[in-house]
Amino acid sequence: MALDTAKLGEPVEIGQIGREIKRLWEATGSAKTRASLINFAIYCEAGEAAERNTELINEFTRTHACRALLIIAEPDAAETRTRAWINAHCHLGRAGEKPVCCEQISFVVEGRARNLIPNILFSNLDSDLPLVLWWQGEFPDPIDEHLWAWVDRLVFDSHLWRNPTAQLTLLLDSLAHTQSRLAMCDLNWTRSLHLRQALAQMFDHPENQPILECLEHVAISHSPEFRSTALLLVGWFAAQLKLELQSCEGSQLLLAAPSGKPVTFALTAEAGRSISRCEVRSDKAAVEVVRDGSGDFFRVEVRLPQGRTYHHLLPAGNNETTSLLAEELALGGRHRVYIKALGIAKALL
């Protein structure tokens, strides 16, 4: 699809971006307030992503004041060139008085110009503020390691990768090589956040903990295209319960508890939300989390011995991309559990 640059704003010379941004704000005078708390950069490759991402940035800036940098790469373009645009997203503040505005700088990087991306990024950052880079799509092999120098949070969605294992290996090797301390933020991991929170809460009660100690089986129902989300969830169980992978045959996985006791995992693909159901079962009890029809809530059922059953209704979150992103940025930290979960999930993805 041809790139439509109409929504990217005003075209500017790349060498003059700083001056043009300054002019942009001077022209607005004191009627608007410019705000920025982070540098929020998006790298994407598809031409149609320009409009989608500009809309996403517009939405994102309602709640996250930032300098947005949108880098659209077109590596297959015949000509090698780089173009830039600037625009502003203004929203009325909560007090409803002065509009609060954020700037967006967009770049279209065509042909062999992809190796210019680190410079484009470094030269247009708002100083002293953290850099969140959202890499949409696959990482190139090799990755230009200069990229990691200043990235604080690297956002990606492993669900969209054709070969998640290869991509994660590439990324982890590159980060290890540069000794980067950036936080890896996999939206595919965030996608199961509310489910994991719902499950974890059920074991706060001491009466329920024997289910984990005597865990026998975990059943996960997932939408066919979200198998990777389910596998990350398996990785989470394995990391938190110190389970070790024994075998994997299609959708049936066999893991072993530290005691050597076998734990089976069954993944079922069925139409619906990313993960629609997860049941955790021991020989005597079970916890089942099912996304309700509206998709907004998880209905949780705890089945204990002697026929005692408890029900809970917990928020399921919203799996829209902007919500996942907002959720991710609200979390902070380095996602150590995710790294642990990858230990097993990477081999399964």
Binding site: K22, L37, D126, D128, L129, P130, A330
Partner: peptide, 27 residues
């Protein structure tokens, strides 16, 4: 002139991020 300081992000948890107070002669 700008001054970078630490600030609690809105929300129930204590999450701290840098913010920047910025003064521009130009504007």
């Amino acid at each position: 002139i700008s001054l970078r300081m630490q600030c609690k992000m809105p929300g129930n948890a204590i999450r701290i991020e840098p913010v920047k107070m910025d003064f521009h002669y130009g504007t």
